[in-house]
């Protein structure tokens, strides 16, 4: 395998500068039936930026990041990923999804495939990579998430923390330009959380653009460039993590943080 810089998935491509937007969302609205889950969402994310989204349960955080790769279809507004508009029902949505990795709260690994096959299925099916190259790349990624010795096990045989790290590696296997995380640690036992967060921190330090829905304040402070606070389907506040957690502007954020801390 040729080892030029493009084979390293957690390095943002060097020709893009930090000020180029990779995600541009404007006027985004989304309803489930009559229920408005997102209302007039506007934000953009530059290459290499790390965004933390937080907010109370039901505020629309998951819906928002799921709209970015069209796991949910929005009704109004525009979403651009790396300059390409993402429209509901578009034909080549797969091409955009291949550039956007996603990590779910409940891992969603493929239980009938080994850890290695979970990673290689994407590159083999989507990029037409042959099995050996894909396995080699997958092993490198498993190494990076500190789990390469489990490559031939099945997901059910791993702990939750290990499964989530496999899920991160699976997403990285597509060499995405952007990673989305939907509460990646909230289904984990407390002692498993730090292993997953460490991997995410390493990924962030490698320059990956990340949008994370998480309530892990330590993580947000350490790697976050901005915190987006959502409540009741809207973005209520955007600020840097230090300001947000120590001195939030809005009453809703204050209320949310006091509830978060009282746990």
């Amino acid at each position: 395998m040729n080892n030029n810089e493009n084979t390293s998935p957690n390095k943002a491509p060097t020709h893009k500068s930090k000020s180029d937007p990779i995600v541009e969302v404007s006027g985004l609205c989304k309803w489930f039936g009559d229920f408005c889950a997102l209302f007039d969402i506007n934000f953009s994310v530059n290459f290499g930026e790390k965004i933390v989204i937080c907010g109370p349960s039901g505020s629309g955080k998951s819906t928002l990041i799921r709209c970015l790769n069209q796991l949910e279809e929005h009704q109004i507004g525009t979403i651009r990923i790396d300059g390409k508009e993402v429209k509901p029902g578009m034909k080549n949505i797969e091409e955009i999804r291949r550039e956007v990795g996603m990590v779910f709260q409940s891992f969603n690994l493929f239980p009938h495939l080994s850890v290695l096959d979970n990673l290689t299925i994407g590159p083999i099916r989507n990029r037409g990579m042959n099995k050996n190259d894909a396995s080699e790349m997958a092993m490198e990624l498993l190494d990076r998430v500190h789990i390469s010795e489990q490559a031939n096990k099945f997901p059910m045989q791993l702990s939750g923390g290990q499964q989530q790290r496999v899920a991160i590696a699976r997403a990285l296997c597509m060499k995405p330009k952007l990673m989305l995380f939907d509460e990646p640690t909230s289904a984990l036992d407390p002692e498993m959380i730090s292993g997953v967060l460490d991997v995410m921190v390493e990924l962030a330090e490698g320059g990956m653009t990340m949008i994370c829905v998480t309530h892990e304040m330590g993580f947000a402070r350490q790697v976050g460039d901005r915190v987006i606070f959502m409540d009741d389907a809207e973005i209520v506040e955007t600020s840097d993590p230090e300001t947000f957690f120590s001195n939030p502007e809005t009453d809703r954020a204050k209320l949310f943080l006091s509830q978060l801390l009282s746990h």
Binding site: G101, M102, I121, G122, R125, A171
Partner: peptide, 21 residues
């Protein structure tokens, strides 16, 4: 539906998700 979503998220086509997942 998590299995469908995981397949979609890595960019698999509908047919590939059905056949492989």
């Amino acid at each position: 539906k998590g299995q469908w979503e995981a397949g979609r998220a890595i960019g698999l086509s509908h047919f590939n998700i059905l056949r492989d997942v």
